[in-house]
């Protein structure tokens, strides 16, 4: 682990491939610069946690990873972000297709005002991943199972998704995200609206999903970052201050700003 502010190269174990990479990423909202030269590697089938105080740029960075910022008119991005070495901001890349590869789960559960079944079936249908009803049913069941919610909803797939509890809605949204078979799942504070039990279920789910997916999660809870991630990146005032293995970041951070933040000395 090293301090990344001088854009140094970090030596990670070679057994994991880099899934996504940010190189000298700068983001501007109009005149205001929100991110400064962020260099980051997100490793395949690992959970990478992005932490930092409000306004530090961690969510902005997360949203760059599947071009969610394209919808913000005044937002301008420089630098390079790749998935498996491909530049996602290339003209030839279709953002809709990209978002199927790099899915997202938001802070507030946002199921469609449709049935539980349709919530999950929607993505595979519009992306043309299935061509008959049996396949679709299978993909819905598999996704709900992977999101650990199948047993709770299997008898009421026609009920509206919005009628579920907050924690269930969030797992439904995760099922919806994995139904299109993404490679990367981005999570923007997925538990901040949930109680501790629902949170624990999502964390357990994240742990299971890691076998098949690469996950990047933004969280305000440092304990959550410590519990679920293998690597942690600390952002402050638009800079990536420090990135390293999670246990090192939480027991022996190198940068004073990281130390100050995780020990609760500044906010």
């Amino acid at each position: 682990m090293k301090n990344l502010e001088q854009s140094e190269v970090v030596n990670y174990p070679a057994d994991r491939a880099i899934k996504m990479q940010g190189k000298d990423v700068k983001v501007f909202y109009g005149e205001k610069q929100a991110l400064f030269d962020v260099n980051i590697d997100i490793y395949d089938r690992e959970v990478t946690a992005l932490i930092g105080p409000s306004g530090c740029g961690k969510s902005t960075f997360l949203r760059c990873l599947n071009r969610m910022n394209d919808t913000v008119d005044i937002c301008r991005i420089e630098g390079k972000i790749t998935v498996d070495g491909e530049d996602i901001y290339e003209r030839s890349v279709d953002p809709v297709h990209l978002r199927a590869r790099v899915g997202m789960v938001f802070q507030k559960p946002n199921p469609f005002p449709k049935s539980i079944f349709d919530n999950v079936a929607y993505g595979p249908k519009i992306h043309g991943l299935v061509d008959n009803k049996t396949d679709l049913e299978e993909i819905v069941e598999t996704s709900l199972r992977k999101a650990s919610i199948w047993d709770e909803v299997k008898d009421r797939l026609d009920a509206p998704g919005t009628g579920l509890s907050g924690g269930q809605q969030q797992r439904l949204c995760i099922a919806r995200a994995i139904a299109v078979r993404p490679e990367v799942i981005l999570m923007d504070e997925p538990c901040s609206a949930l109680d501790p039990i629902a949170t624990a279920k999502i964390e357990e789910l994240i742990h299971e999903l890691r076998e098949n997916f690469t996950i990047a999660i933004v969280t305000h809870s440092m304990q959550q970052a410590a519990r679920v991630s293998q690597r942690t990146a600390f952002f402050h005032l638009g800079h990536l201050v420090e990135m390293g293995e999670t246990d090192q970041i939480f027991t022996n951070p190198e940068d004073e700003r990281t130390q100050g933040y995780i020990t609760g000395r500044f906010g």
Binding site: M222, T251, G264
Partner: peptide
């Protein structure tokens, strides 16, 4: 308090 870093040490 869920201490971290130097506090934990």
């Amino acid at each position: 308090r869920q201490p971290m870093a130097d506090d934990l040490r």
